[in-house]
Each structure stands twice: as structure tokens, then as C-alpha cells.
Amino acid sequence: MNFEQWAVGDSLFHRVSSPFKMIAAICFCFGLASCKQVDAALMGLFFTICGVLLARISLLALLQRLVLVNIFTLVCWFTLPVTVVGRAVAHIWFLSISAEGLALALLITIKTNALVLAFVVLIGTSSVVDLGHGLRVLKIPQKLCLLLLFSYRYIFVIYDEYRRLSRAAILRSFRPTSSMHTYQTYGNLFGMTLVKGWQRAGRVRDAMVLRGFSGEFVALSTVKICLADWLLVIVVFCCTAVVLAVEYRL
């Protein structure tokens, strides 16, 4: 099970240290999220596609991800043209399709995809461990960084635990249906997963205290700031400025 499929690679984006990428991502994503004009959003989408090509990540996997992301935008395409009041461009049965509704659905689709791509390029190209340490550099409270790193560490353990339990249930002829028995079985399976996680947490904590854990998580790799870091932040700032300039017709 590999969740961090974009984090491995060799490109400019993979080399830049995570705190810089996070600052760049916050700036660009919030800039793009504030857009209300389709051309500004298209500009943002153009920049993010350039970023995707530069980051050299698997396009096929990215497309598969975008299909899932677009389920919500699909709901918008079905509801907004009908509910938004405006100039009618077509009539289906008794419903009128408004141009304003279609434009809003288009804007949302472009923005959603652009923001997701920007997120993959700027944040997805770092591993969670790097992100955790990067957050520490950005002066985010230590407890929150520890929560992130530990949760990430134990997701896989807990998922394996759950799968072991559910495999055992399947071996005992459990077949999920929409019945009370199924829900009870899921409840018990998940309850057991929680109990095991709880007990494991206690053991891990004891082991860490025994090894002198004092609430400080020491990073093995230190963040080295190089020219590429600053360059990326400056380029992303410029892209955001261009998007906002198009938005406000400067």
C-alpha cells in the first residue's frame, strides 16, 4: 500500500525543501481560491499544468485521481444550471438551463482541478515525514507535528490490523449485506481495532519514555536552504500575482 505515490521522484519540486513548498502552496492556493473570473482560473490551471509537467509525476495516476475529485463538480454540473436564475439557453422538459449556472459550474470545475493539481505538485511531492519537520520549521506547535508524524506512522499498522480482523471474519463466512448483523460485525471489528490501537499506543509510549523521549522529535535530516528553494517561492509568488492581476483586470 503506497499512499505517497507522488513523493518519490527527481525534479525541481522534489528537491525543494518542504517549508518553502508549503509557503508557496498557501500563497498560490489561496490566491487561486479567491478567483471569480474564468480566465483567471484558467491562468491558474495553466500554471499548475506547467508545474505538473516540471514535477514529472505519473500523468495516468494523476488523471485517475482527478476523476474521483470531479465527482463533486459533476453534482454541480447537474444542479447549478437548473437552480441558478439567469438567461435561459436551453429547456429540458420543464427545467430551464441558465447560462450563469453553466458558467459557475465551469468556474468551479477549473478551480477545483487547478487547486488539486497545485496541491499535488507543491505538497504531494514531499513525504509526510518531511512535511512534519517542515511544519516545525514554520513554528507550528510541536504537539501538532508529533500528532501528524505518529498518526502517519500508525495508519499502516492499524489498517493491517483491521484487514487481519476482517480477513478472519470472511474466513468464518461473513458476507457483508445491508443487515443488522453486518453492522454489528463491523462495529465489533472496528471496536477491536480501536482496542488494539489503544493498547499499542500505551506500549509505544512506555517504550519511548524508556528511551528518553522528552516531547521533542529529532529529525534525522536537517533542512538545508539552497537557491532553488528561494527561486521556487519567488516563481510561485509571481504566478499568483499574474493570476490575481488577471482576476482584478489590472
Binding site: L146, L147, L149, F150, S151, Y152, R153, Y154, I155, V157, I158, L194, G197, W198, R200, A201, G202, V204, R205, M208
Partner: peptide, 8 residues
């Protein structure tokens, strides 16, 4: 640790 485990 417990909170992180529950978060996971």
C-alpha cells in the same frame, strides 16, 4: 500517542 493512534 493515544490521540495520534485514534487519529490514524
Amino acid at each position: 500517542m493515544t490521540t495520534a493512534m485514534l487519529s490514524a
